[in-house]
Protein backbone atom coordinates (compact mmCIF):
# COMPACT_ATOMS: atom_id res chain seq x y z
CA UNK A 1 0.00 0.00 0.00
CA UNK A 2 3.11 2.16 0.07
CA UNK A 3 2.46 2.69 -3.60
CA UNK A 4 -0.71 4.54 -2.80
CA UNK A 5 1.46 7.21 -1.24
CA UNK A 6 3.65 7.34 -4.32
CA UNK A 7 0.57 8.00 -6.33
CA UNK A 8 0.02 11.31 -4.65
CA UNK A 9 3.68 12.24 -5.02
CA UNK A 10 4.92 14.66 -7.65
CA UNK A 11 5.14 13.58 -11.24
CA UNK A 12 8.90 13.80 -11.49
CA UNK A 13 9.27 11.60 -8.45
CA UNK A 14 7.06 9.01 -10.09
CA UNK A 15 8.97 9.12 -13.33
CA UNK A 16 12.20 8.63 -11.43
CA UNK A 17 10.82 5.49 -9.87
CA UNK A 18 9.48 4.31 -13.21
CA UNK A 19 12.86 4.85 -14.80
CA UNK A 20 14.65 2.93 -12.09
CA UNK A 21 12.39 -0.09 -12.09
CA UNK A 22 10.91 0.10 -15.56
CA UNK A 23 10.99 -3.60 -16.24
CA UNK A 24 9.73 -4.59 -12.85
CA UNK A 25 6.84 -2.12 -12.78
CA UNK A 26 5.80 -3.10 -16.28
CA UNK A 27 5.90 -6.76 -15.44
CA UNK A 28 4.06 -6.19 -12.19
CA UNK A 29 1.31 -4.17 -13.85
CA UNK A 30 0.93 -6.81 -16.55
CA UNK A 31 0.77 -9.41 -13.82
CA UNK A 32 -2.06 -7.55 -12.06
CA UNK A 33 -3.95 -6.99 -15.29
CA UNK A 34 -3.60 -10.69 -16.07
CA UNK A 35 -4.77 -11.50 -12.57
CA UNK A 36 -7.91 -9.41 -13.01
CA UNK A 37 -8.59 -11.06 -16.35
CA UNK A 38 -8.07 -14.40 -14.63
CA UNK A 39 -10.44 -13.40 -11.83
CA UNK A 40 -13.15 -12.57 -14.37
CA UNK A 41 -12.57 -15.89 -16.16
CA UNK A 42 -12.71 -17.69 -12.82
CA UNK A 43 -16.10 -16.17 -12.00
CA UNK A 44 -17.46 -17.46 -15.32
CA UNK A 45 -15.65 -20.78 -15.49
CA UNK A 46 -16.31 -21.81 -11.87
CA UNK A 47 -20.06 -21.96 -12.56
CA UNK A 48 -19.45 -23.76 -15.84
CA UNK A 49 -17.19 -26.29 -14.13
CA UNK A 50 -19.59 -26.78 -11.21
CA UNK A 51 -22.53 -27.46 -13.52
CA UNK A 52 -20.48 -29.83 -15.63
CA UNK A 53 -19.02 -31.62 -12.65
CA UNK A 54 -22.35 -32.32 -11.00
CA UNK A 55 -24.80 -32.53 -13.89
CA UNK A 56 -22.41 -33.65 -16.64
CA UNK A 57 -23.81 -30.94 -18.90
CA UNK A 58 -21.40 -28.63 -20.69
CA UNK A 59 -23.44 -25.45 -20.75
CA UNK A 60 -22.57 -23.74 -24.02
CA UNK A 61 -24.97 -20.93 -23.13
CA UNK A 62 -23.11 -20.01 -19.95
CA UNK A 63 -21.43 -16.93 -21.41
CA UNK A 64 -24.65 -15.86 -23.11
CA UNK A 65 -26.24 -15.81 -19.66
CA UNK A 66 -23.16 -13.97 -18.36
CA UNK A 67 -23.85 -11.30 -20.98
CA UNK A 68 -27.49 -11.13 -19.83
CA UNK A 69 -26.08 -10.51 -16.34
CA UNK A 70 -24.00 -7.60 -17.66
CA UNK A 71 -27.05 -6.07 -19.37
CA UNK A 72 -29.15 -6.59 -16.23
CA UNK A 73 -26.49 -4.79 -14.17
CA UNK A 74 -26.62 -1.94 -16.67
CA UNK A 75 -30.42 -1.73 -16.36
CA UNK A 76 -30.34 -1.74 -12.56
CA UNK A 77 -27.55 0.83 -12.56
CA UNK A 78 -29.58 2.99 -14.93
CA UNK A 79 -32.64 2.80 -12.67
CA UNK A 80 -30.64 3.54 -9.51
CA UNK A 81 -28.45 6.18 -11.10
CA UNK A 82 -29.58 8.99 -8.76
CA UNK A 83 -27.96 7.13 -5.89
CA UNK A 84 -24.23 7.08 -5.37
CA UNK A 85 -24.13 3.40 -4.52
CA UNK A 86 -26.01 2.31 -7.67
CA UNK A 87 -23.19 0.26 -9.20
CA UNK A 88 -22.44 -1.65 -6.00
CA UNK A 89 -26.11 -2.59 -5.61
CA UNK A 90 -26.77 -3.40 -9.24
CA UNK A 91 -24.01 -6.04 -9.41
CA UNK A 92 -25.55 -8.34 -6.74
CA UNK A 93 -29.03 -7.52 -8.04
CA UNK A 94 -27.99 -8.70 -11.51
CA UNK A 95 -26.67 -11.93 -9.99
CA UNK A 96 -29.92 -12.56 -8.12
CA UNK A 97 -32.11 -11.72 -11.11
CA UNK A 98 -30.07 -13.98 -13.36
CA UNK A 99 -30.34 -16.79 -10.80
CA UNK A 100 -34.12 -16.57 -11.12
CA UNK A 101 -33.78 -16.84 -14.89
CA UNK A 102 -31.41 -19.77 -14.41
CA UNK A 103 -33.93 -21.48 -12.14
CA UNK A 104 -36.64 -21.15 -14.80
CA UNK A 105 -34.29 -22.41 -17.54
CA UNK A 106 -33.40 -25.47 -15.49
CA UNK A 107 -37.02 -26.29 -14.68
CA UNK A 108 -38.32 -25.79 -18.21
CA UNK A 109 -35.44 -26.80 -20.48
CA UNK A 110 -32.26 -28.27 -19.00
CA UNK A 111 -34.23 -30.80 -16.94
CA UNK A 112 -35.43 -32.41 -20.17
CA UNK A 113 -31.97 -33.15 -21.56
CA UNK A 114 -30.24 -34.83 -18.60
CA UNK A 115 -30.62 -38.28 -20.10
CA UNK A 116 -29.66 -37.31 -23.61
CA UNK A 117 -26.39 -37.95 -25.44
CA UNK A 118 -23.50 -35.58 -25.08
CA UNK A 119 -23.96 -34.23 -28.61
CA UNK A 120 -27.65 -33.55 -28.08
CA UNK A 121 -26.87 -31.63 -24.89
CA UNK A 122 -24.14 -29.62 -26.60
CA UNK A 123 -26.32 -28.77 -29.59
CA UNK A 124 -29.23 -27.92 -27.33
CA UNK A 125 -27.27 -25.45 -25.21
CA UNK A 126 -25.66 -24.12 -28.41
CA UNK A 127 -29.16 -23.41 -29.74
CA UNK A 128 -29.91 -21.65 -26.44
CA UNK A 129 -27.11 -19.18 -27.28
CA UNK A 130 -28.91 -18.15 -30.47
CA UNK A 131 -32.15 -17.62 -28.59
CA UNK A 132 -30.56 -15.74 -25.66
CA UNK A 133 -28.36 -13.52 -27.84
CA UNK A 134 -31.34 -12.66 -30.00
CA UNK A 135 -33.50 -11.90 -26.96
CA UNK A 136 -30.76 -9.58 -25.68
CA UNK A 137 -30.89 -7.77 -29.02
CA UNK A 138 -34.68 -7.49 -28.80
CA UNK A 139 -34.70 -6.26 -25.19
CA UNK A 140 -31.65 -3.98 -25.07
CA UNK A 141 -31.20 -3.06 -28.74
CA UNK A 142 -28.06 -3.03 -30.83
CA UNK A 143 -26.40 0.00 -29.27
CA UNK A 144 -23.51 -0.53 -26.87
CA UNK A 145 -24.22 0.18 -23.24
CA UNK A 146 -21.73 1.81 -20.90
CA UNK A 147 -21.81 2.34 -17.16
CA UNK A 148 -20.28 5.54 -15.80
CA UNK A 149 -18.08 4.39 -12.96
CA UNK A 150 -18.26 6.00 -9.54
CA UNK A 151 -15.26 8.22 -8.84
CA UNK A 152 -13.62 5.73 -6.51
CA UNK A 153 -12.87 3.36 -9.38
CA UNK A 154 -12.71 5.91 -12.19
CA UNK A 155 -9.02 6.78 -12.29
CA UNK A 156 -5.99 4.51 -12.48
CA UNK A 157 -3.85 3.76 -9.47
CA UNK A 158 -0.09 3.56 -9.65
CA UNK A 159 1.47 0.44 -8.26
CA UNK A 160 5.29 0.51 -8.24
CA UNK A 161 4.99 3.36 -10.68
CA UNK A 162 2.93 1.45 -13.23
CA UNK A 163 -0.65 2.50 -13.91
CA UNK A 164 -3.42 0.02 -13.20
CA UNK A 165 -7.15 0.42 -13.68
CA UNK A 166 -8.38 0.78 -10.09
CA UNK A 167 -11.53 -1.17 -10.91
CA UNK A 168 -9.32 -4.20 -11.62
CA UNK A 169 -8.55 -4.32 -7.90
CA UNK A 170 -12.25 -4.76 -7.26
CA UNK A 171 -12.39 -7.53 -9.90
CA UNK A 172 -9.47 -9.37 -8.31
CA UNK A 173 -11.03 -8.90 -4.88
CA UNK A 174 -14.38 -10.31 -6.04
CA UNK A 175 -12.66 -13.27 -7.67
CA UNK A 176 -10.76 -14.00 -4.45
CA UNK A 177 -13.88 -13.70 -2.28
CA UNK A 178 -15.83 -16.05 -4.58
CA UNK A 179 -12.94 -18.54 -4.66
CA UNK A 180 -12.72 -18.60 -0.87
CA UNK A 181 -16.50 -18.65 -0.49
CA UNK A 182 -16.88 -21.57 -2.89
CA UNK A 183 -14.05 -23.45 -1.21
CA UNK A 184 -15.68 -22.90 2.18
CA UNK A 185 -19.08 -23.93 0.84
CA UNK A 186 -17.81 -27.10 -0.82
CA UNK A 187 -15.56 -28.31 1.98
CA UNK A 188 -17.21 -27.03 5.18
CA UNK A 189 -20.96 -27.22 4.68
CA UNK A 190 -23.32 -30.14 4.43
CA UNK A 191 -24.69 -29.12 1.04
CA UNK A 192 -21.17 -28.61 -0.23
CA UNK A 193 -20.34 -32.17 0.76
CA UNK A 194 -23.41 -33.44 -1.05
CA UNK A 195 -22.36 -31.58 -4.20
CA UNK A 196 -18.84 -32.95 -3.99
CA UNK A 197 -20.26 -36.44 -3.52
CA UNK A 198 -22.52 -35.91 -6.53
CA UNK A 199 -19.47 -34.99 -8.65
CA UNK A 200 -17.95 -38.32 -7.66
CA UNK A 201 -21.01 -40.54 -7.98
CA UNK A 202 -24.56 -39.38 -8.55
CA UNK A 203 -25.88 -42.89 -8.15
CA UNK A 204 -24.46 -43.15 -4.67
CA UNK A 205 -25.90 -39.79 -3.62
CA UNK A 206 -29.26 -40.86 -4.97
CA UNK A 207 -29.03 -44.18 -3.13
CA UNK A 208 -28.53 -42.29 0.13
CA UNK A 209 -31.98 -40.83 -0.32
CA UNK A 210 -30.87 -37.35 -1.34
CA UNK A 211 -33.16 -35.92 -4.03
CA UNK A 212 -30.75 -35.56 -6.95
CA UNK A 213 -33.12 -33.54 -9.20
CA UNK A 214 -33.32 -30.91 -6.48
CA UNK A 215 -29.54 -30.85 -6.16
CA UNK A 216 -29.32 -30.38 -9.93
CA UNK A 217 -31.67 -27.42 -9.85
CA UNK A 218 -29.76 -25.66 -7.10
CA UNK A 219 -26.35 -26.38 -8.55
CA UNK A 220 -27.52 -24.93 -11.85
CA UNK A 221 -28.90 -21.88 -10.04
CA UNK A 222 -25.61 -21.46 -8.17
CA UNK A 223 -23.66 -21.70 -11.42
CA UNK A 224 -25.89 -19.14 -13.09
CA UNK A 225 -25.67 -16.90 -10.00
CA UNK A 226 -21.90 -16.88 -10.47
CA UNK A 227 -22.36 -16.08 -14.16
CA UNK A 228 -24.66 -13.19 -13.20
CA UNK A 229 -22.13 -11.92 -10.67
CA UNK A 230 -19.41 -12.15 -13.30
CA UNK A 231 -21.62 -10.28 -15.77
CA UNK A 232 -22.31 -7.56 -13.23
CA UNK A 233 -18.61 -7.20 -12.45
CA UNK A 234 -17.81 -7.13 -16.17
CA UNK A 235 -20.38 -4.43 -16.95
CA UNK A 236 -18.32 -1.35 -15.98
CA UNK A 237 -15.03 -2.61 -17.46
CA UNK A 238 -15.72 -1.52 -21.01
CA UNK A 239 -18.88 -1.00 -22.95
CA UNK A 240 -21.34 -3.89 -23.08
CA UNK A 241 -21.75 -5.10 -26.64
CA UNK A 242 -23.72 -7.79 -28.44
CA UNK A 243 -21.72 -10.88 -29.21
CA UNK A 244 -19.22 -10.27 -26.39
CA UNK A 245 -20.05 -13.75 -25.15
CA UNK A 246 -18.78 -15.52 -28.28
CA UNK A 247 -15.10 -15.32 -27.44
CA UNK A 248 -15.62 -15.59 -23.69
CA UNK A 249 -17.37 -18.98 -23.70
CA UNK A 250 -14.50 -20.59 -25.57
CA UNK A 251 -11.99 -19.08 -23.15
CA UNK A 252 -14.03 -20.39 -20.22
CA UNK A 253 -13.96 -23.86 -21.84
CA UNK A 254 -10.20 -23.56 -22.17
CA UNK A 255 -9.91 -22.63 -18.49
CA UNK A 256 -11.90 -25.68 -17.49
CA UNK A 257 -9.87 -27.88 -19.85
CA UNK A 258 -6.55 -26.67 -18.46
CA UNK A 259 -7.67 -26.88 -14.83
CA UNK A 260 -9.64 -30.09 -15.11
CA UNK A 261 -13.38 -30.69 -15.26
CA UNK A 262 -15.15 -30.46 -11.94
CA UNK A 263 -12.15 -29.24 -9.95
CA UNK A 264 -12.52 -25.86 -8.24
CA UNK A 265 -8.79 -25.50 -7.60
CA UNK A 266 -8.13 -26.46 -11.21
CA UNK A 267 -10.54 -23.80 -12.44
CA UNK A 268 -8.79 -21.19 -10.30
CA UNK A 269 -5.33 -22.16 -11.53
CA UNK A 270 -6.56 -22.47 -15.13
CA UNK A 271 -8.12 -18.99 -14.98
CA UNK A 272 -4.93 -17.42 -13.71
CA UNK A 273 -2.83 -19.24 -16.31
CA UNK A 274 -5.05 -18.09 -19.17
CA UNK A 275 -5.27 -14.54 -17.80
CA UNK A 276 -1.50 -14.28 -17.37
CA UNK A 277 -0.70 -15.80 -20.77
CA UNK A 278 -2.97 -13.18 -22.28
CA UNK A 279 -1.46 -10.31 -20.29
CA UNK A 280 2.16 -11.23 -20.92
CA UNK A 281 1.87 -12.18 -24.57
CA UNK A 282 0.60 -8.63 -25.13
CA UNK A 283 4.14 -7.53 -24.21
CA UNK A 284 6.00 -9.90 -26.48
CA UNK A 285 3.63 -10.80 -29.30
CA UNK A 286 0.54 -8.56 -29.24
CA UNK A 287 -1.31 -10.38 -32.02
CA UNK A 288 -0.57 -13.82 -30.70
CA UNK A 289 -2.32 -13.80 -27.33
CA UNK A 290 -5.30 -15.89 -28.40
CA UNK A 291 -3.14 -18.13 -30.58
CA UNK A 292 -0.91 -18.93 -27.58
CA UNK A 293 -3.91 -19.69 -25.38
CA UNK A 294 -5.27 -22.22 -27.86
CA UNK A 295 -1.84 -23.76 -28.35
CA UNK A 296 -1.60 -24.31 -24.59
CA UNK A 297 -5.15 -25.71 -24.51
CA UNK A 298 -4.48 -28.09 -27.40
CA UNK A 299 -1.22 -29.32 -25.81
CA UNK A 300 -3.03 -29.87 -22.51
CA UNK A 301 -5.81 -31.84 -24.20
CA UNK A 302 -3.30 -33.97 -26.07
CA UNK A 303 -1.04 -34.88 -23.17
CA UNK A 304 -3.49 -34.68 -20.26
CA UNK A 305 -7.12 -34.43 -21.41
CA UNK A 306 -8.47 -34.36 -17.86
CA UNK A 307 -6.48 -31.23 -17.02
CA UNK A 308 -4.11 -30.28 -14.23
CA UNK A 309 -6.34 -31.14 -11.29
CA UNK A 310 -9.09 -33.24 -12.81
CA UNK A 311 -9.43 -36.98 -12.59
CA UNK A 312 -9.71 -39.11 -15.74
CA UNK A 313 -13.11 -40.59 -15.01
CA UNK A 314 -15.46 -39.40 -17.71
CA UNK A 315 -14.83 -39.36 -21.43
Amino acid sequence: METGGRNSGSKSEREEITGESMDFSLIFSQFLSGLSRGAMLFLIASGLSLIFGVMNILNFAHAALWLVGAYLAYTFWNLLQPYGFSLWVSIPLAAVALSAIGWAIERVLIRRIYNRTLSEQLVFTFAMILVIDNLIKIIWGVQDKAIVRPSIVASPVFIFGAPLDSYFIFVIFTGAVVAIGLWWFLSKTKYGHIIKAAVFSREMVSALGIPVPKIYTWVFVLGIFLAGLAGGVQAPIGSITLGMDNAVIIQAFIVVVIGGFGSLLGTLVGSIIVGEIYAFSILFWPDGAMILIFVVAAIMLIIRPWGLFGTPMRT
Binding site: L58, L118, F253, I291, F294, A297, A298, P305, T315
Partner: peptide, 23 residues
Protein backbone atom coordinates in the same frame (compact mmCIF):
# COMPACT_ATOMS: atom_id res chain seq x y z
CA UNK B 1 -9.74 -38.61 -27.81
CA UNK B 2 -13.45 -39.30 -27.78
CA UNK B 3 -16.64 -37.68 -26.54
CA UNK B 4 -16.38 -34.32 -24.90
CA UNK B 5 -12.58 -34.19 -25.21
CA UNK B 6 -12.83 -34.78 -28.96
CA UNK B 7 -15.39 -31.99 -29.24
CA UNK B 8 -13.25 -29.51 -27.29
CA UNK B 9 -9.96 -30.42 -28.98
CA UNK B 10 -11.49 -29.97 -32.45
CA UNK B 11 -12.93 -26.69 -31.16
CA UNK B 12 -9.51 -25.59 -29.86
CA UNK B 13 -7.71 -26.41 -33.10
CA UNK B 14 -10.46 -24.67 -35.06
CA UNK B 15 -10.09 -21.53 -32.96
CA UNK B 16 -6.30 -21.74 -33.23
CA UNK B 17 -6.50 -21.64 -37.03
CA UNK B 18 -9.20 -18.98 -36.86
CA UNK B 19 -6.99 -16.65 -34.82
CA UNK B 20 -3.96 -17.30 -37.06
CA UNK B 21 -6.02 -16.34 -40.13
CA UNK B 22 -7.51 -13.41 -38.21
CA UNK B 23 -4.14 -11.96 -37.16
Amino acid sequence: LTGIYFAILTLSFGQLIYYIVFE
